[in-house]
Design a binder for these strands. Structure first.
Lengths: 160, 160
DNA sequence: CCTCTTTTAGAAGACACTTGCAATTTAATA
DNA sequence: TATTAAATTGCAAGTGTCTTCTAAAAGAGG
């Protein structure tokens, strides 16, 4: 009997190892769904799980290559952030004060991107849209508005 | 009598130095308008101009802080690219095969970004939109379509 | 539980910058 | 055009993030 995590590893051909299961677990439990490699490493050490930093990097790279996670770079930040791939395409809105990341989709923007690529004579492969601003919590009272957020869903903007 | 480059340096309060003028010149002459620090450094050394790499980095940082240049990171590329700030906001379309960068604006996308930020309760400060694909030249015959391009203008997509 | 292959930890290395500091250059003033 | 104080530079050393090397350990099939 395989756990869901074992199943997803099996599908990629990657062996089920302790470090890989642990890293998936950390990503699942992540409040913001977006974590840096070092952050994942620290989180593991706090739970007294001995996983080397090099392994964390290696595993994340493998996960990305196998579509299990998505990798992003935000703003000037020179490090990468990883999120579990929920198979639902989305863009990112990042709070420049608290660092939290919100996910959204806007169909109109998606459509226009195709038009733009087309106009320029490109075959579009991929895109990344990052919005940077200050979230309502930080704006109002300096307290991150996402702290208490429980469920994580991609915000679908009304195409009004 | 000041040259345009001296004038723009003066406006920032930065002293007119040989390295700074040279770097502005290299950026002006750049075919793609988007260059990495090391690339600028190499270009200078090819013209027998002795400017240290650290200086190139330092100057580019100062230029960015003073609004003379814009800094971008594209895709997985871990290095930064710089372009002269032409004061006309634009997004980027990058060819994943030849590496060339095209600039464009789409008013509809700009508008929708405001709507999205608003819906999420954010005060929008900034954004970056990168489209990745294959340019027509590379797609057709493996030859970069931008090579012969002379004038560089921001492509304004029809808001059809 | 044996054997083969994959994976891991830790150390060393790579890459893209950044910083400390003494020497040089700039530019305001004499 | 000299003088001089402050800004700037070059080089070397240092950082942060990530990758690679190797011997040892752990998975998976028989």
């Amino acid at each position: 009997m395989k756990s869901p995590k074992e199943t997803s590893l099996a599908k990629t051909g990657l062996r089920t190892t302790h470090p890989r299961l642990l890293i998936l677990e950390v990503l699942e439990k992540s409040r913001t769904r977006h974590m840096g490699a070092e952050e994942i490493y620290d989180s593991l050490r706090e739970s007294n799980e001995e996983v080397g930093l090099a392994t964390v990097y290696r595993v994340l790279t493998q996960f990305e290559q196998n579509g299990l996670v998505l990798k992003h770079r935000f703003g000037e930040d020179s490090k990468a952030y990883y999120e579990l791939n929920n198979e639902q395409h989305h863009d990112h809105m990042v709070c420049v004060e608290c660092g939290d990341v919100y996910e959204f989709v806007d169909d109109e923007i998606e459509r226009r991107q195709d038009v733009v690529a087309d106009s320029l004579g490109f075959v579009l492969h991929d895109h990344s849209l990052h919005l940077y601003g200050v979230c309502s919590g930080m704006e109002k009272n300096g307290e991150c508005s996402m702290k208490k957020r429980k469920s994580e869903t991609v915000y679908q903007v009304e195409s009004n």
